[in-house]
């Protein structure tokens, strides 16, 4: 059940953010980090895969072109976590998750629904939040509930836009463990937009680096995230070192000025 993107163009109001993006096939069970500077198109890519933006080109999941699929069918296969957190309203976490489940998993029995919801609260370690209102939660807690809305439906393709942006270190690790568990050894694929290159190095099977000008590089994290690529993409001096346990870590030393366009001849 691989994911293929061919000649994909997407953007807003006739202003494409990226054009003709073609990627190597993403294999089932993969956790892919989507990284790159601000405004390069990470969120746009995830939104276009989720069917929230009009696209040109082909998005193929398990041999089926998603762009030709009716929204109702697409919902069953894709789970999308947007960057904005769930609103701070008087809706308890349990029914926030239940509402997402009901819209995309109609036809399940009540027992199956209850079991799936209970499981996702336990997996994410947020059982204590189940009967609390979103209006009484912190931003991080609401982000966890948003993630539960995605994971409870067990979608084949998970698109998570900065799922750890509001979380402390403990919950960042919890979330990535849960996403890893939901993909590893299964048919599912997760694409996670993030600014945290170290979490990408630690958890992800592949990294997709989007760079200004529509350039994209994809491959295994240690192959792709090189000092040269980081310098070109983020305009920083950076090193890739290893910690005492042997994990690669990115150390950003200082920003460097981009080469002015007029000097390139």
């Amino acid at each position: 059940m691989s994911l293929k993107l061919e000649q994909l163009t997407a953007g807003y109001r006739r202003r494409p953010v990226f054009r003709d993006l073609t990627l190597p096939a993403i294999e089932p069970g993969s956790l892919v980090a989507v990284v790159g500077p601000n405004a390069v198109g990470k969120s746009t890519l995830l939104k276009s895969l989720a069917g929230l933006l009009p696209v040109q080109g082909r998005i193929e999941l398990d041999g089926q072109d998603l762009t030709a699929l009716a929204p109702a069918m697409r919902v069953h296969r894709i789970g999308y976590l947007p960057q904005p957190l769930p609103q701070a309203i008087p809706l308890v976490a349990y029914e926030t998750v239940l509402s997402a489940f009901r819209s995309a998993r109609g036809g399940w029995s009540r027992e199956q629904t209850e079991q799936a919801i209970e499981r996702v609260f336990d997996t994410l370690g947020i059982r204590s939040l189940a009967l609390r209102r979103l209006s009484e939660m912190s931003g991080g807690q609401r982000q966890m509930v948003g993630l539960a809305q995605v994971l409870v439906r067990q979608p084949q393709l998970m698109l998570l836009d900065e799922p750890t942006s509001a979380l402390d270190l403990h919950w960042q690790l919890n979330v990535l463990n849960a996403v890893k568990a939901a993909t590893s050894g299964t048919d599912a694929i997760a694409m996670v937009a993030s600014h945290d290159l170290n979490l990408a190095l630690r958890y992800c099977d592949q990294v997709l680096v989007l760079a200004p000008g529509g350039r994209a590089v994809m491959g295994e994290p240690e192959e792709v995230l090189t000092p040269e690529l980081l310098a070109r993409t983020y305009h920083i001096d950076a090193r890739i070192e290893r910690c005492s346990r042997g994990h690669p870590i990115v150390l950003a030393d200082r920003p460097v000025m981009p080469v002015p366009t007029q000097e390139i001849t």
Binding site: A50, G51, L52, P86, L91, A100, S103, G146
Partner: peptide, 14 residues
């Protein structure tokens, strides 16, 4: 209910 919790999430859920 979905729309109140978040418009983008609601859209992605059809």
């Amino acid at each position: 209910t979905l729309l109140r919790s978040g418009e983008e999430q609601a859209r992605s859920l059809g």
